[in-house]
């Protein structure tokens, strides 16, 4: 388990070093805010409204297809590791599995989901 401890320690160390550089920079940098500096940057135009708004659902559909494929990949990882011992049965199974998923991708493709606009 001590190997996995290194991951935690690296995360904490990395964050600490980044925060430390922020702190060093805070000590030596000037601090002179005035209202114009805090305005949202939009190429010299005044921003109209917030940007916390509803967004294009295209991203949502791509995310949905991604989730399906990502779950497939999670199944593929143990299969790939144990492939040497499993033999023909696992190979046929996995080819069928991938083909079923590609049937889904093909369906989405024909439905026009993969077009951007």
């Amino acid at each position: 388990m001590s190997e996995y401890l290194s991951v935690l320690i690296f995360a904490v160390t990395g964050a600490a070093i980044v925060l430390f550089t922020f702190f060093i920079s805070k000590l030596i940098r000037p601090h002179n805010p005035y209202p114009e500096k805090g305005v949202t940057y939009e190429c010299a135009e005044d921003a109209i409204g917030d940007s916390w708004i509803r967004f294009n659902p295209r991203f949502y559909i791509f995310a949905l297809i991604f989730v399906i494929f990502d779950v497939e990949v999670i199944f593929l990882f143990p299969w790939a590791v144990a492939f040497g011992e499993l033999g023909l049965f696992a190979l046929v199974e996995m080819v069928i599995f991938i083909l079923i998923l590609f049937f889904g991708l093909f369906y989405a493709w024909k439905k026009g989901v993969l077009k951007w606009v």
Binding site: S25, K26, G38, D50
Partner: peptide
């Protein structure tokens, strides 16, 4: 970059 002012947007 270390000595640059940290300009933060208000919103």
């Amino acid at each position: 970059l270390l000595q640059k002012e940290d300009v933060r947007v208000d919103k």
